[in-house]
């Protein structure tokens, strides 16, 4: 068994244990050299992505849901039959399937379908933007802490610990309460609360990369410290951070909905799924769809992101250290 022999040597790397798993997922284009040496996964082609998704229907469905929700929200101004804030006082509380109002109307006579189409926008914007901010800030903090170590590491990580020590929702409430409830402040609140997640991850990865000799080689040839951090180490961390990012998007979406439900997010009359749940909940027995439909929308969107995050995590555990 030539491959078995080749693995006995130093070239054997622990992550190759999972090679079988990667093969099952169909994404294994990892360059396995003829002698069995471990290699970096090759860039993954579109056909490999489709093959992978064909074997994971739930993940494929999740991607469809996420992309569809985002597309529909993006196109809401054209898709929505009415202005979501227009009140038709004569048409209040119409049931689903009414003429002109496919999803009925709420207690103010606003078209529920239009509100649903528009109501996903804050959630999507808040979750994507806040995670992007958290990744950017967490990357810088984690990279500095992990590479420079010493007192810088100490100070940065203790600050992260302080942020983590607050219950997340309380932390967000404090910030929104202090700064005022609007889209920007909710984004700030959620981004700030998620920075430690990425800072810790990036720090840990940086410590691991720094132990590799290519970092030392960079020092030996005279690269500056920022150069080593940004152009040597950072590109090797991008993959795992993106994976973590997809999972945190789900968390951020959930908190955005929660803040909105508590009245700390988008202010009425602007439509937002979280606030629609709150408004509809008072009428749960008269018109259950008013609260349930936006609630289901939130749950489906968050769950889809969770499935995507889990799937990417599995792929990374199997596929090795980095991804293109």
């Amino acid at each position: 068994m030539p491959t078995a022999w080749a693995r006995i040597g130093r070239s054997w790397k622990p992550f190759r244990i999972c090679k079988g798993k990667a093969a099952v997922t169909g994404l294994d284009r990892a360059a396995s050299l003829p002698d069995g040496r471990a290699g970096r996964p090759k860039p993954i082609g579109l056909s490999a992505v489709f093959r992978h998704l064909a074997r994971r229907p739930v993940v494929a469905l999740s991607w469809v849901i996420v992309l569809a929700v985002m597309l529909v929200s993006l196109l809401a101004p054209w898709l929505a039959p009415f202005d979501p804030t227009d009140q038709a006082t004569t048409d209040r509380m119409l049931p689903m399937g009414s003429d002109a109002f496919a999803m009925g109307t709420d207690q103010f006579g606003r078209d529920q379908l239009s509100r649903l189409l528009w109501g996903g926008r804050p959630l999507i914007v808040i979750s994507l933007v806040s995670v992007a901010i958290a990744i950017a800030a967490g990357f810088v903090i984690g990279l500095c802490a992990g590479y420079l170590r010493g007192w810088i590491d100490m100070v940065l990580m203790r600050v992260m610990d302080v942020i983590l020590s607050f219950p997340l929702i309380l932390f967000a409430i404090v910030i929104v309460a202090a700064l005022g409830p609007n889209l920007i402040n909710v984004i700030i609140a959620i981004a700030l609360s998620q920075i430690p997640v990425f800072a810790r991850l990036v720090r840990a990865l940086t410590v691991g990369e720094t132990a590799k000799e290519y970092v030392l080689a960079g020092k030996a040839v005279g690269f500056s410290t920022p150069r080593i951090m940004l152009s040597e180490i950072a590109p090797n961390l991008v993959g795992p951070v993106i994976v973590q990012g997809t999972s945190v998007i789900a968390v951020a979406a959930l908190y955005s909905a929660a803040l909105s439900y508590l009245g700390l997010g988008i202010q009425p009359p602007e439509p937002d799924w979280g606030y629609m749940v709150k408004e509809g909940q008072q009428l749960l027995f008269f018109a259950p769809s008013l609260a349930l439909v936006p609630g289901i929308c939130i749950a489906v969107f968050v769950t889809a992101w969770n499935f995507i995050g889990d799937d990417l995590r599995d792929l990374f555990a199997a596929g090795g250290e980095t991804m293109p």
Binding site: S11, R40, E213, Y214, A217, P235
Partner: peptide
Amino acid sequence: MVFQDPYTSLNPR
């Protein structure tokens, strides 16, 4: 300097 481990001494990217 020439390094010990050729698998980690070259930046994979």
